[in-house]
Simulated assay, not measured.
Amino acid sequence: MSLPELSVRILVFTFALLWLSGCAYQAQEAPAGSWQAQKTTLTQLQQWQLSARLGIITPDERGSLSLFWRQDRDDYRMNLTNVVGKRVFDLTRRQGQIMLTDHEGQQHQATDARELVLRLTGWDLPVEQLSYWIKGLPGEQDQVEYDADGRPNTILAHGWKLRYLGYTRIDGLWLPSRLDLTHNDTTLRLAISQWELES
C-alpha cells in the first residue's frame, strides 16, 4: 500500500476537526504595540518545540493528525502521527540534508522538503515557511495585516493565505495558538496545545 493510499484511509476515519474549538489556548488581548516590541526576540528565537493538532482538508481528504515540531536553528524535526498514535511520517532537516521516514520505516531524501512531502503524500505543506510563520513571524517580503493589538492577523505569501485566530502568552512572548492556512484547494488548520521555548 502506498503512503498516499494509507494517508487517505487514516484521514477518512478521523474526527472532522471538532477539536479545533476547544483544545488550543484561548485568544488573549495584548497591550498595544507589544508584538512589535517582541519582534526582535521572535527573530532570535531559534530553539523551540510545540505540540499541535493539524487538520488537513483537500477535495479528497478531511481529517486531523497530531503534530510534534522541534526547531534547532536551521534544523528541525516534524513528526506526524494518526489518531491512534502511529507514525504517518517523520521529516527531519540536519545540516542541510532533508529526510522523510514513512510509516513503513523507509527513508526518502530530497533537497526540497515541500516537494518531498507533496510527492510522497499528496499534501501541500509549506514546511520551510512554517518554521517562522508558526511563531507569528512574517517573512520580509510577506504582505501582512495586523490586528488591533499590533500582532499579525493575516499573511499573504508564496500563494498561501494565513489567518491567525488566537494568541497566547508564553514566557513573556505572544505566540500563536490557532491558525488557518489556505493554498488553492488545500486548507491546513493548526491548534497548538503546547509551546516550549529554549534560550
Rank of each mutant, 00 (worst) to 15 (best):
Arg151Asn: 08
Leu54Gln: 02
Lys161Tyr: 02
Ser64Met: 01
Glu29Val: 05
Asp112Val: 12
Thr121Asn: 00
Pro59Leu: 07
Asp147Glu: 02
Gly22Cys: 09
Asn82Trp: 01
Leu130Thr: 03
Leu6Asn: 14
Leu118Phe: 14
Thr186Cys: 06
Glu5Tyr: 09
His158Trp: 07
Arg77Trp: 06
His108Arg: 13
Leu120Glu: 06
Val83Asn: 05
Ser64Ala: 08
Gly105Leu: 08
Gly122Asp: 08
Gly136Ala: 15
Trp35Pro: 04
Lys86Tyr: 15
Arg178Phe: 07
Asp60Ser: 09
Trp133Thr: 10
Ser177Trp: 00
Leu165Ser: 10
Leu80Phe: 13
Val127Met: 05
Glu198Lys: 03
Gly33Asn: 10
Gln44Gly: 15
Gly85Arg: 01
Ala37Tyr: 04
Thr40Glu: 07
Leu190Thr: 00
Thr121Pro: 05
Thr101Asn: 02
Leu197Trp: 06
Thr111Val: 15
Gly136Glu: 08
Glu128Met: 04
Ser199Gln: 12
Asp102Glu: 09
Asn153Pro: 07
Ala27Tyr: 09
Trp48Cys: 11
Arg178Trp: 00
Asp185Asn: 04
Leu17Ile: 10
Gly85Ser: 09
Gln97Tyr: 12
Leu54Gly: 07
Asp75Phe: 05
Pro138Cys: 11
Trp133Glu: 01
Tyr146Pro: 11
Leu91Ile: 07
Ala110Gln: 13
Leu11Phe: 10
Arg53Phe: 02
Ser21Lys: 12
Trp174Glu: 00
Gly63Ala: 02
Thr92Leu: 07
Arg87Gln: 12
Leu11Gly: 01
Glu29Pro: 00
Glu5Gly: 08
Thr14Glu: 11
Leu20Asn: 04
Leu18Thr: 13
Met99Ile: 10
Arg70Phe: 11
Ser51Asn: 11
Ser21Ile: 10
Ala52Cys: 06
Asn79Tyr: 07
Val12Gln: 08
Leu130Trp: 06
Trp123His: 06
His158Ala: 15
Trp174Val: 01
Val127Pro: 09
Gly96Met: 01
Tyr25Ile: 01
Gln44His: 14
Leu190Ser: 10
Ile57Lys: 07
Met78Gly: 03
Asn184Pro: 13
Lys161Ser: 13
Leu173Asp: 10
Arg151Met: 01
Leu20Lys: 06
Leu116Ser: 11
Gln97Lys: 14
Ala52Val: 01
Gln194Ile: 00
Ser2Trp: 02
Leu54His: 05
Asp180Gln: 14
Pro126Thr: 01
Lys86Gln: 15
Arg163Phe: 13
Trp195Val: 00
Glu61Lys: 05
Pro152Tyr: 05
Ser66Leu: 04
Asp72Gln: 04
Phe13Leu: 13
Val144Tyr: 05
Val88Asn: 06
Leu165Val: 08
Ala52Leu: 02
Ala37Phe: 01
Leu18Trp: 12
Glu61Gly: 09
Asp60Val: 08
Thr187Ser: 15
Arg178Lys: 15
Leu175Asn: 04
Arg70Val: 12
Val83Pro: 02
Leu45Asp: 04
Thr43Ser: 13
Gly33Met: 09
Gln47Ile: 06
Arg53His: 12
Pro176Asn: 07
Leu100Asp: 06
Trp195Glu: 03
Ser193Thr: 05
Ser2Phe: 01
Leu45Glu: 08
Gly96Ile: 03
Thr187His: 14
Leu179His: 08
Thr41Cys: 13
Ala24Thr: 06
Pro176Arg: 02
His103Lys: 11
Leu120Phe: 05
Arg189Met: 14
Gly172Val: 02
Phe15Gln: 10
Ile134Pro: 00
Trp48Gln: 08
Leu181Cys: 11
Gln28Phe: 00
Asp112Phe: 12
Tyr25Met: 00
Gln26Asp: 10
Glu5Ile: 14
Ala113His: 02
